[in-house]
């Protein structure tokens, strides 16, 4: 008697991601009840985004869906709901500028203006050399250091145009 595994699942989980990525995602899966693998979807998307130069393709989202036994549309829903997932290419350094109230009244406008002029791009755009992209974000919870922005994972606070110059110049 032969009882098959689902043959429509054409790929083994090992074939979907590299060992390194799997280890990273599996570490998250382990945090949740076994029947709630999908709890790791946000982490998995973040891991894949980081691995792909900062943005997610449909194929990557499909891979995440397959890896976590979710329907692809469910993963698209998650990826389009949270603002930290990017569905278009971003710069090597994604500059997320807060313009919410505390930053605004501390003249984040000047920071934004300076960045736009210096980089020659607007919000949602990438510099031609692919090094920078600009994004307007909501309050990042660092209002005491307003105005501020985040580049990659790091917060930079108490910005002035001069400080901005030295930060950007110091990036690889």
């Amino acid at each position: 008697m032969n009882k098959f595994m689902n043959p429509l699942q054409t790929r083994n989980k090992e074939e979907i991601f590299s060992a390194e990525i799997r280890e990273d995602i599996d570490r998250w899966i382990a945090k949740y009840p076994p029947e709630w693998k999908q709890s790791a979807v946000m982490a998995a998307l973040r891991i894949m985004q980081d691995d792909n130069g900062g943005w997610l393709t449909t194929e990557l989202m499909d891979d995440v869906a397959e890896y976590l036994d979710m329907s692809p549309i469910h993963v698209y829903e998650v990826a389009t709901f949270y603002s930290m997932y990017e569905l278009k290419p971003v710069g090597k350094h994604k500059i997320c500028v807060c313009t919410n109230i505390a930053c605004m009244i501390n003249d984040s406008d000047a920071i934004v203006k300076h960045l736009k002029e210096k980089l020659g791009i607007g919000f949602g755009e990438v510099t031609e050399d692919g090094r920078f992209s600009l994004k307007e974000v909501e309050c990042l919870g660092a209002c005491g250091g307003a105005p501020m922005f985040q580049i990659g994972r790091k917060y930079y606070e108490n910005l002035t145009p001069k400080v901005v110059d030295s930060i950007l110049d110091g990036l690889e």
Binding site: K31, Y32, W36, K37, Q38, S39, A40, V41, M42, A43, L45, R46, L68, M70, H74, E77, V78, F81, Y82, S83, M84, Y85, V137, E138, C139
Partner: peptide
């Protein structure tokens, strides 16, 4: 720890729970 993904509404307690469950918040 569970990391969010950028959504103010996930501070609302039940949205937060949905988010941990791997859904939209």
């Amino acid at each position: 720890s569970h990391l969010g993904g950028g959504a103010y509404v996930c501070g609302e307690e039940t949205a937060l729970l949905e988010s941990i469950e791997g859904k939209k918040g």
